[in-house]
Nucleic acid binder design. Structure first.
Lengths: 211, 211
DNA sequence: CCACCTATCTGAACGGCGTCAAGATCAATC
DNA sequence: GATTGATCTTGACGCCGTTCAGATAGGTGG
């Protein structure tokens, strides 16, 4: 059927399959969810044999890593955008938190892969690693700026972890449809997110130093 | 090899297999983790053929439901115990939160199943449902008692969700070994948990009304 | 221009998985 | 003691991840 998202020129043998496989995987994730994401299905979607991916990835896990990498990039851009859009220091963390959870709602299957594929290797997910510009560092640096120099480093670290836990927990919870009536009562999805985050200390607007 | 945990009298045909299967599943979970938990492996561990479980469970999902049910029971007992042990109102939520996360650390594979098996059906996990005595209701009732009658119901609900998100997020994060050095610096696992929770509003000791 | 080399892809196979249908087995009931 | 119905086994199906021998074809040196 279809072989790639766009009819790009294929520079090589059968095309630049590595990218095509990652895109095929993302297509399957969005249309059929994480349980349908088998290596064979990805190969099928990309129009190659089940063994072809093994010339580009060591195993299924490495393919999922590549997919997760794309996800963390996208999430990082969302969060950076939210940080730049924030009106004042007091709302910085809230805006970043909301953008985090909204990303998880817009790409629930991808979000799942981003955590699952790293748990299998029990490593930290890519976006939580202490790299130069990981999403986690973005949050920590934001806390550092918001908190001021007198707050001990360990408190910055703990606050970052706490915020991440809260956002991740909310991301997982908000997928359950049982909260729908509460969401409606509050005036929509985003009001619900802000309502929950507002009960969580560091996300309270107008209290930048409260860490 | 071994067929059941204890040499109980087998009242029936081949034994009361339903219970034996759930116990076999739990044994596999604890010894080999969630990825090794196949229906066939459970049947093998229980000493029956791969098709035998189908006379007691509709499919693999229903077996996992039964396993998760045990887990939610255990977690509920942990949390109830923590609530009763709490010295004062101000530390109630913290103690419950700590017991929640500690349970997830003591039974990581079981904890995973407790959430995963319900996500597949996209239903709320058993312990989060609005039943009479679910773990979720335990938390909400605690909040209601701690907050006093003047706090609106919707805030109780949001605070409960927020607390649950934070605890669940922390439960997932604390499995990553990358926080080990921070944990050591703080004086151990429990100090880490209390440190993170302490940054999260409703878990701050001595501030029972802050919801 | 040609022959080789190497990366890439296919086809077929292996064992393991979830699930099902048909038959064997055995406790309980009449 | 024969019948019944629940329970368990056997064998099969299609899908999965993975491997390996062989086909293919782009790039390179002659």
């Amino acid at each position: 059927m279809r072989e790639a998202a766009a009819a790009e020129p294929r520079p090589y043998h059968h095309g630049d399959l590595r990218r095509a496989l990652v895109e095929a995987a993302r297509r399957i994730l969005e249309s059929e969810g994480p349980t349908a994401l088998s290596l064979r299905a990805v190969a099928r979607e990309a129009g190659v044999s089940p063994a072809a991916p093994y010339h580009h990835f060591k195993d299924k896990g490495e393919l999922l890593d590549a997919v997760a990498h794309v996800g963390w990039d996208m999430l990082g851009e969302s969060m950076t955008g939210a940080k730049q859009r924030a009106a004042d220091l007091g709302s910085l963390m809230t805006e970043i938190g909301v953008s985090y959870v909204q990303f998880s709602q817009q790409h629930p299957a991808l979000y799942r892969v981003m955590y699952d594929c790293s748990r299998d290797k029990d490593e930290l997910p890519e976006g939580m690693q202490d790299n130069e510009d990981s999403a986690y560092c973005l949050v920590r640096e934001t806390f550092r700026k918001v908190a001021g120099p007198e707050v001990p480093i360990v408190d910055i670290e703990l606050a970052t972890i706490a915020a991440w836990c809260a956002a991740h927990g909310l991301a997982e919870m908000s997928t359950f449809k049982q909260f729908d009536s509460l969401k409606i009562g509050l005036g929509g999805e985003e009001a619900f997110l802000r309502g929950v985050l507002g009960h969580l200390g560091m996300f309270q607007a107008g209290k930048p130093a409260r860490i």
